[in-house]
């Protein structure tokens, strides 16, 4: 089986390397610096690390001020606070003036686990993808989190980079290139396409294997690590070539990646059957990550079921 690692560990390590390469990189945190893995950066570059305490709105504004002064800013806290608590600050102070601030959240999604609904951010993709000027990236695993950290630093302007709390399977290769706005094909296939983002990419791969073994269904798997801008070309190509789409995300199905893909398809020439796997429009609850994934419909089995639905409707 796959090796496991935390996305945020990769982020923290990449940040230190970035700090060595560029002295205009600064980091702002809001008390959760250890949880977000930015303390190593702070240890090595104390003068470039700022902690606002439990004050995410100020964190966001301070990040804007630093960016207006020529810095590339990494602003990190839990997804629920980064995008929810400080939404107006992100909108007015960062997205509107299009500043070079990378809002990097950890602890996104239901796999936060025991903390419960208050901390399980399931709406952040929706909040960020609707904002003009904001780009949204959700890496699949450890390797992609590292690459995405470098990639967002090289692309000027506001980004939302979304990561989780838990260790997740490493499903990509260390060496493969990573481009913002480009989906990668992790498995070729011709019967149906499974499009995952973030930690759901590994569930898509599992689902593809199950479909193949049990019923000889040849599913393609796409890793949609950039949610905005969406790789429309890959989406339409897959619709055309496989005739059906299943999307999977650790987010409410309304207004997430799947919604974005549905929008792309509905305006394309390929109105193929589609099914979105994700969390219904409800709040989460406390529990173990795997229990929550099961209860809220986020496992490979759910993806397989959705693939059947799509195939039947074709």
């Amino acid at each position: 089986m796959w090796e496991m690692a935390k996305q945020r560990d990769a982020y923290g390590e990449a940040l230190v390397e970035l700090g060595r390469e560029r002295d205009d990189i600064v980091v702002v945190g809001a008390d959760l610096c250890g949880s977000c893995r930015v303390t190593n950066f702070g240890d090595e570059f104390p003068e470039r690390m700022f902690n606002t305490g439990i004050a995410e709105q100020n964190m966001t504004g301070v990040s804007a001020g630093l960016a207006l002064s020529g810095k590339t800013v990494f602003s990190s806290t839990f997804a629920v606070f980064a995008t929810g608590r400080a939404y107006d600050q992100v909108r007015q102070s960062i997205a509107y003036p299009e500043l070079d601030v990378k809002i990097v959240s950890t602890h996104a999604g239901i796999t936060v686990g025991g903390d419960g609904a208050s901390h399980q951010m399931l709406e952040d993709i929706a909040l960020m993808r609707v904002l003009p000027n904001m780009k949204v990236v959700a890496p699949a695993d450890y390797h992609e989190s590292r690459k995405a950290t470098f990639a967002v630093s090289e692309n000027e302007g506001p980004f939302y980079l979304r990561m989780g709390r838990s260790s997740v399977p490493i499903v990509t290769e260390e060496e493969t290139s990573f481009e913002i706005g480009e989906a990668s094909v992790l498995k070729e296939g011709s019967d149906v396409t499974l499009i995952g983002t973030g930690i759901m990419v590994s569930e898509c791969l599992k689902a593809a294997e199950m479909l193949n073994k049990q019923e000889d269904i040849d599913a393609r798997v796409l890793n949609m690590s950039t949610i905005k801008p969406l790789d429309e070309k890959s989406i339409v190509k897959s619709a055309k070539e496989t005739g059906g789409i299943v999307t999977a995300e650790e987010h409410v199905v309304s207004q997430g990646m799947g919604s974005g893909i549905a929008q792309v398809l509905s305006e394309s020439d390929y109105h193929v059957p589609m099914k979105r796997v994700g969390i219904p429009n409800v709040f989460g609850e406390s529990g173990e990550s795997d229990e929550l994934m099961e209860k809220y419909g986020l496992t490979a089995e759910h993806i397989v079921e959705s693939a059947h639905d799509v195939l039947e409707r074709r």
């Binding site: 504004g61 301070v62 600050q89 102070s93």
Partner: peptide, 25 residues
């Protein structure tokens, strides 16, 4: 114009970030 403002309450944070940057540089 040095900063986008209008939603009240945000400018002091932005100014603080600028002041930090001045010191850093």
């Amino acid at each position: 114009v040095d900063a986008s403002t209008g939603s009240l309450g945000q400018g002091l944070s932005i100014a603080s970030g600028m002041a930090l940057a001045a010191r850093l540089d």
